[in-house]
């Protein structure tokens, strides 16, 4: 399984970013390889419109199986992610990445679809 997180940093103990479209990083954990990689999304700060679809496109290209985030994607991003055959879990906005992963594993996060 490949699990994507919206985060404010690139470590396991970094905080999650509750925002989807304007998340600072997308962290990607590949469970098979036990490897945590990331995509820097901070350039989105200067984008006035369409942050949601743009971040969704980046996420789509990473082909994760699961997305863990805070508030959940908005309408435009949701339309993109609907194409991606992806399970979305929300409510992890105030956790570290590690806490969010553990909460997901224990089934404590809310499925947004």
């Amino acid at each position: 399984m490949k699990i994507a997180f919206t985060t404010k940093g690139i470590e396991w103990n970094s905080m999650m970013d509750p925002r989807f479209g304007r998340t600072e990083f997308i962290a990607l954990y590949d469970e098979e390889k036990d490897e945590l990689t990331n995509v820097d999304n901070r350039s989105i700060e200067s984008v006035a419109h369409g942050a949601g679809p743009q971040t969704a496109q980046k996420l789509f290209d990473l082909k994760p199986d699961v997305l863990i985030t805070g508030n959940g994607p908005g309408g435009n991003a949701g339309r993109v992610l609907a194409q991606a055959n992806l399970k979305i879990f929300i409510g992890a906005g105030n956790m570290t990445v590690k806490e969010a992963y553990d909460a997901y594993k224990k089934g404590e996060l809310k499925n947004s679809k």
């Binding site: 419109h49 679809p53 789509f60 435009n76 993109v80």
Partner: peptide, 16 residues
Amino acid sequence: HAVIQLGDQIMVFPEL
């Protein structure tokens, strides 16, 4: 960002 490409699909966002 009103037009994006997802794999072999192009999506248009009229609101953007």
